[in-house]
């Protein structure tokens, strides 16, 4: 639905695009600030979902319908679910985060100043040349031909490139010219999945996962482990059930 609405905005004269930009841009900036400011990590993650949706709307407005859909599915869907899952898993212990004193004195003012400097530098160097009216997409011929500078920074627009459809165009590039990087990313995904499995595995002895510990134990190990336990307990080490109970008590101590 977002894609359809945004397409309607594009087909209208660019007045609609302006209002979409103002409203969605404000939401985008506000939610991004909330991610940084909110103390609760779960609230921050939900604000990040809002931010991902606004960026999907921008993609749709900028004639990148395929990326808008992928943004919603991959980012707002898969990645954020993973984030929320991990936040729930490790527990929300971040309430004190912003209240506590920073380890470095004047860390926050310095970070804010650095952020402002970075924004100014990016605004001047990246966005600066494209701020004239002639850079609005798609630039009209007359506006682009007005001066040499306007011709350099005019916006071509994707109407011609999207003639066959945006998804078809991206797919043709992806499986034509860029098929080798595409295959490499598939290998990367497999490696990442394997790495996450290896990292996420709990490093416990195999015996803890078996209901009856005796299944995996050989007699020699049994006696050697039973000895230190039987000392303080004072029980008979050769009693079978006692050994199992002692081992279980031992294992629970480790955890």
């Amino acid at each position: 639905m977002v894609v359809v609405l945004a397409q309607a905005a594009v087909n209208e004269p660019s007045n609609a695009e302006f209002f979409v930009f103002i409203v969605i841009g404000a939401i985008s900036l506000g939610s991004a600030l909330c991610v940084v400011v909110l103390r609760n990590a779960v609230h921050g993650a939900l604000m990040l979902v809002v931010n991902f949706f606004t960026i999907a709307v921008f993609y749709a407005v900028m004639e990148a319908q395929f990326l808008a859909t992928v943004q919603v599915i991959v980012y707002a869907g898969a990645i954020m679910v993973l984030f929320l899952f991990v936040i729930m898993l490790v527990g929300v212990d971040s309430e004190q985060d912003l209240r506590a004193n920073p380890a470095i004195p004047a860390q926050r003012p310095a970070a804010a100043v650095l952020g402002l400097v970075l924004f100014a530098a990016l605004a001047i160097s990246v966005a600066g040349p494209y701020l004239q009216r002639s850079s609005a997409c798609p630039s009209t011929e007359a506006a682009a031909a007005a001066t040499d500078a306007a011709a350099l920074t005019s916006c071509v627009g994707l109407a011609a490139a999207n003639e066959q459809g945006n998804t078809q165009g991206v797919g043709a590039l992806l499986f034509g010219e860029y098929v080798w990087p595409f295959e490499v990313t598939s290998v990367l995904l497999v490696i990442a999945a394997l790495g996450a499995m290896v990292l996420g595995r709990k490093d416990e002895p195999l015996i803890d996962r078996v209901d009856d510990p005796l299944v995996l134990r050989d007699p020699q190990e049994q006696t050697s482990e039973a000895e230190p336990v039987s000392g303080p307990a004072g029980g008979a080490a050769d009693d079978h059930a006692d050994t199992v109970g002692a081992y279980r008590a031992d294992a629970s101590e480790e955890v």
Partner: peptide, 8 residues
């Protein structure tokens, strides 16, 4: 109009 620089 929305110049492309606004998005940047």
């Amino acid at each position: 109009v929305v110049p492309a620089g606004y998005y940047l």
